[in-house]
């Protein structure tokens, strides 16, 4: 909704909102949140510091965490087995905090593509991928990916070969999925770190495939700046 192509100059409500010095700009819900937050802090249910730390932990989680797990699974078949058997335990093995929920890792094969969704709300493996993208929580993806996954993937620029099966996994609050994509051809000599670099958030949701093309193979000449 923040596309830069629809500026209506002269409408001063287009200005950037500054939360701390523009109380009049608070929407009804922003004011509600600010009020409830202050009441909870006043009652010592939590402190502003607790909140700051919670937001820092939230901001520290990113798809790079899940990508580490995927890359490890690509280079270490025994780890791959453990990851598919118990995603949470395999995450902890790498020192990744995973919370109380189950993490089920579903592996793509030559015949099958996996995709995750939460049709009822927004359940997402946030400990390993960070906060979900807006589209994951929005109506179109949740409604359509379970009935026409190929069409939805095409909207992400991902075209699957004819005959490939697509499995869509519907998450719950207690059971969250992550996709283990296939390691791309031609990456045999890559380091684990370089491999992790091509595993994007969308690859682990299942709407995209790892693309080795833009990344030079290890040992390729560094382009001097």
């Amino acid at each position: 909704m923040s596309g830069g192509h629809e500026h209506h100059h002269g409408h001063d409500h287009d200005r950037t909102f500054q939360p701390d010095d523009d109380a009049a700009g608070l929407s009804e819900h922003m004011a509600l949140v600010a009020a409830v937050r202050e009441l909870l802090i006043e009652q010592d249910i939590y402190s502003a510091e607790d909140e700051r730390r919670a937001i820092e932990r939230m901001d520290a989680r990113s798809p790079a965490t899940g990508a580490r797990m995927v890359a490890r699974a690509w280079v270490d078949p025994a780890y791959r087995e453990r990851l598919l058997a118990d995603g949470a335990a395999a995450a902890r093995e790498l020192g990744i905090e995973i919370g109380p929920t189950r993490l089920i890792v579903v592996a793509d094969t030559a015949e099958t593509k996996n995709v995750i969704v939460c049709t009822l709300c927004s359940c997402y493996p946030r400990w390993v991928l960070g906060l979900p993208p807006a589209w994951y929580k929005a109506r179109a993806y949740r409604a359509r990916v379970v009935v026409e996954p190929r069409a939805v993937l095409a909207e992400f620029g991902t075209t699957l070969p004819e005959g490939m099966a697509v499995r869509v996994h519907d998450s719950t609050a207690d059971m969250r999925y992550m996709v283990l994509p296939r390691r791309p051809e031609g990456t045999g000599s890559w380091s684990e770190e370089a491999l992790a670099g091509i595993v994007s958030r969308d690859c682990m949701i299942g709407v995209a495939l790892p693309d080795p093309a833009p990344h030079p193979a290890p040992g390729a000449a560094e382009s001097a700046a």
Partner: peptide, 24 residues
């Protein structure tokens, strides 16, 4: 929403605002 009628997926990125992080 599974199976409901809906338009195309808006695949663009949206930053999470600070007040939204406070809710979370």
């Amino acid at each position: 929403l599974g199976g409901a009628q809906a338009g195309p997926v808006e695949t663009g990125e949206h930053a999470v605002a600070h007040w939204e992080k406070q809710v979370d």
